[in-house]
């Protein structure tokens, strides 16, 4: 797991916990959307938090199953944006 993946996974877990009260253990491959971790509200919170924390600009077109489906997908997106 890369350092960025670890950091993203922490942010995602913290957002889910904040939004739902659920303590979760995630791996970079956990199916965030398929397994119901990311409901619409949590997705929106995460979307805002990622931009703050990693100082990147995300577009709603980035909110896809491919990127937000796993923390690895999110990390790849952020890595790509930080270029």
């Amino acid at each position: 797991m890369s350092a960025l993946e670890t950091e993203v996974t922490e942010v995602v877990a913290a957002t889910i916990e904040e939004s739902t009260g659920l303590t979760v253990e995630l791996t970079p491959e956990t199916a965030l959307i398929d397994e119901g971790y990311l409901d619409s509200l949590t997705v929106l919170q995460l979307f805002a938090k990622l931009q703050d924390r990693f100082e990147v600009e995300l577009d709603m077109d980035d909110l896809t199953e491919e990127t937000f489906g796993t923390t690895r997908g999110i990390a790849t997106l952020i890595d790509d944006r930080r270029g």
């Binding site: 959307i33 990311l38 409901d39 619409s40 997705v43 577009d59 709603m60 077109d61 980035d62 909110l63 896809t64 199953e65 990127t67 937000f68």
Partner: peptide, 10 residues
């Protein structure tokens, strides 16, 4: 069946 607005817009 899920909230993925980027995919939805596409």
């Amino acid at each position: 069946n899920r909230f993925v607005p980027g995919d939805d817009r596409r």
